[in-house]
């Protein structure tokens, strides 16, 4: 490990090859490279790219789920989808989920990681393990346990009422105003541990000498964090946020066991919407469900690009 970290970074590709090799020639010389890539190309092609292409194709079909095949109907699914209030409702819910859950998970985990990274904090290993526990718990169990403890007569509400924080029990999962936020809370609880570990790993990359230097300069906790830790963590922030966002798009089993998307669609995220159209309808609509998936994919991608452009513009403006 030490060898590699101190090594100079080289980006240039292999030894100075004779220039102007033809494409064919290059491919033949590099045969072993393709051998190395073979498992990935075959596996990725079959299990990721092909299904993706297939679901794009399904999006243009009228395919009632009980039939073996569908019939081509062009953009009709997308036209219906565009006018479907419930699709946009689920899209909004997914965005709210992303916008609240991801920053919460990333931020809270960072805070805890900083505390747990300090040598002076007692029982660091124990706390780390306890916070990590929910990550290894399967979704079905989490769903059932939380439905019971968040229940109006459950322990959480008993504690809230007894401590006089609220007058009457909070309907965490059964009111349309609360359900989405309750699911967000449970999701952050379940996955915080893994983000915490990412942050701890990131923090360990900061050499201790930097902190010592800051101390000697008389920097307090806040200043130390603001001027030493934070700048060094920024690159990790991007990666960790990205990974957590992928997770936030896969909340299906948790939502299903906690609220089923209800009440009154208030916690229905796009994945649940797709599931409902593909499996839960009187006559399942596979083409329509695929169209919803494709449209959602396009919209998220557009948002991601807009965000990236925005960040770039902001950086330019700062510089």
């Amino acid at each position: 490990m030490t060898v590699t970290t101190e090594a100079p970074v080289r980006q240039k590709a292999p030894a100075p090859a004779p220039k102007r090799r033809t494409v064919w020639r290059r491919m033949r010389d590099d045969w072993w490279i393709y051998l190395f890539l073979l498992p990935t190309v075959v596996g990725y092609g079959l299990y990721t790219v092909y299904p993706l292409v297939a679901s794009w194709w399904y999006a243009f079909l009228d395919w009632p789920g009980f039939a073996d095949v569908g019939t081509f109907i062009g953009f009709a699914n997308f036209e219906l989808l565009w006018a479907d209030d419930l699709f946009w409702n689920s899209f909004r819910n997914s965005l709210v989920f992303l916008a609240i859950a991801v920053p919460l998970r990333v931020g809270l985990a960072l805070l805890l990681a900083i505390v747990l990274n300090r040598r002076s904090t007692p029982f660091r290993g124990l706390f780390r393990t306890l916070l990590f526990l929910p990550v290894v718990t399967t979704g079905a169990i989490v769903g059932v346990v939380f439905t019971l403890i968040l229940d109006a007569g459950g322990p959480v509400n008993l504690a809230l009422v007894k401590s006089a924080l609220v007058d009457s029990p909070v309907d965490f999962l059964g009111s349309s105003g609360m359900s989405l936020y309750s699911v967000i809370g449970v999701w952050v609880w379940k996955w915080l541990g893994i983000t915490l570990i990412y942050w701890l790993a990131a923090l360990q990359t900061i050499p201790n000498e930097l902190y010592e230097a800051a101390r000697i300069d008389g920097a307090g906790n806040w200043k130390e964090f603001r001027y030493v830790t934070l700048p060094l963590l920024l690159p990790f922030l991007v990666v960790i946020t990205l990974i957590d966002m992928v997770g936030a798009l896969n909340v299906f089993d948790l939502v299903m066991t906690l609220t089923g998307g209800g009440p009154a669609f208030s916690s229905e995220v796009v994945e649940v919407y797709i599931y409902r159209t593909a499996f839960g309808a009187t006559v399942p609509q596979l083409g329509y469900a695929s169209a919803a998936a494709v449209l959602f994919g396009l919209l998220t991608m557009a948002l991601a690009i807009a965000q990236a452009l925005g960040i770039r513009a902001a950086r330019r403006a700062m510089a």
């Binding site: 590709a13 292999p14 494409v23 290059r26 491919m27 590099d30 490279i33 393709y34 890539l37 190309v41 990725y44 299990y47 990721t48 790219v49 092909y50 299904p51 993706l52 297939a54 679901s55 399904y58 990205l242 966002m245 992928v246 798009l249 896969n250 299906f252 994945e271 797709i274 599931y275 593909a278 596979l286 695929s290 998936a293 994919g297 998220t300 991608m301 991601a304």
Partner: peptide
């Protein structure tokens, strides 16, 4: 990481495009 070869850009492009793909969307074809 270490070599340049024909098709590298395409491969990386495919990786990036499919990065966010949740499994629920593709369960039927798979």
């Amino acid at each position: 990481g270490r070599y340049d070869f024909v098709g590298k850009k395409v491969l990386i492009g495919v990786f990036l495009v499919t990065f966010f793909l949740p499994e629920g969307y593709t369960i039927i074809p798979v």
